[in-house]
C-alpha cells in the first residue's frame, strides 16, 4: 500500500530542459516489444502445414483481424492498415496481460502510453482521410451541417483521442488499484488470483479489443 501513487522516474537536464522519464513504463514497454519480437520469430521460424504452437496463435491473430479489418475498410486499404491494427492489438493485449506476473507492471497503466497510442491513431486516421478524400473535401466535412458548427466538430475529433486513451488507462489503472487495495484488505488470501484473472485477463482483453476496434472505426469513418 505504501507504493500507491508513486512513480519511478529518471530525471536529467539537457539543453535547458528538465526531462523526466517514467522508468517503469519505458522498461516494461521494451520488455513487451522484446516478447513480441520473440513471438514473431518463433511463429515464422518453421512454417509448416502442420503448425507449431506459436504459428497457431499467430494465424489466429492474423485471420481474426484480417476479417475485421476487411469488413471495416475496403480490400485495398485493409491490406495497408491491417499490420497496424493487428500489431496494435497484440501489443495492447500483451501489455494488459503482463500485469498478472509478479513484479511486472502494465505499460498501459501510464497515461503517456495510451495517450501516445491514441494520438498516433488520430494522426493516422486523419492522414488517411485526407489521402482518400482530398484536402478540400476533408476540410469541408468540418463545416458539414452548417458553417458555424466547425468548433463543435473540431472538439468532437479531439474528444475521441481523449476518450479512447482515458478509457484504456482508467480501466487498467483502476483494476490494478482495486487489486492492490483488496489484496491489502484480505492479507493476500484467496481472492487475488481471481481478481487478477478478472481485471488482468478479461478486462485487459476486452479493453485491448475495444481500443483496436475504435482506432479501426475512426480510420473507416474518415475514409468514408
Amino acid at each position: 500500500m505504501e507504493g500507491l501513487g508513486e512513480v519511478a522516474t529518471w530525471e536529467m537536464d539537457m539543453a535547458g530542459w528538465h526531462l523526466v522519464f517514467n522508468a517503469t513504463t519505458i522498461m516494461m514497454t521494451l520488455v513487451i516489444v522484446a516478447l513480441l519480437l520473440l513471438f514473431g520469430w518463433q511463429a515464422a521460424r518453421k512454417r509448416a502445414p502442420v503448425p507449431n504452437l506459436f504459428q497457431v496463435v499467430g494465424e489466429l491473430f492474423v485471420v481474426t483481424f484480417w476479417g475485421l479489418t476487411r469488413d471495416a475498410l475496403d480490400e485495398k486499404l485493409a491490406k495497408k492498415y491491417f499490420p497496424l491494427i493487428c500489431s496494435l492489438f497484440m501489443f495492447l493485449v500483451l501489455s494488459n496481460w503482463i500485469g498478472i506476473i509478479p513484479w511486472m507492471e502494465e505499460p498501459t497503466k501510464d497515461l503517456n502510453t495510451t495517450l501516445g497510442l491514441g494520438i498516433m491513431g488520430f494522426f493516422i486516421a486523419h492522414f488517411c482521410g485526407i489521402q482518400a478524400k482530398g484536402l478540400k473535401a476533408y476540410v469541408k466535412q468540418y463545416f458539414e451541417p452548417m458553417f458555424f458548427m466547425m468548433p463543435l466538430n473540431v472538439i468532437g475529433e479531439i474528444a475521441k483521442v481523449v476518450s479512447i486513451s482515458f478509457r484504456l488507462y482508467g480501466n487498467i489503472m483502476g483494476g490494478s488499484i482495486i487489486i492492490l487495495v483488496v489484496t491489502y484488505l484480505v492479507y493476500g488470501l484467496l481472492l487475488p488470483p481471481f481478481l487478477n484473472a478478472f481485471f488482468g485477463l478479461f478486462v485487459g482483453t476486452v479493453q485491448a479489443f475495444v481500443f483496436t476496434m475504435l482506432t479501426l472505426v475512426y480510420i473507416s469513418v474518415q475514409v468514408r
Binding site: 476518450s163 482515458f166 478509457r167 488507462y169 482508467g170 480501466n171 489503472m173 483502476g174 488499484i177 476486452v206 479493453q207 479489443f209 475495444v210 476496434m213 475504435l214
Partner: peptide, 20 residues
C-alpha cells in the same frame, strides 16, 4: 455486447480517473 458495454463504461471510467 461486450464491446458496446466497454464503450458505455467509459463515463464511469472518467469518473474513476477524476476520483483518482
Amino acid at each position: 455486447m461486450l464491446v458496446g458495454q466497454a464503450v458505455s463504461e467509459s463515463t464511469g471510467i472518467y469518473s474513476l480517473v477524476v476520483a483518482l
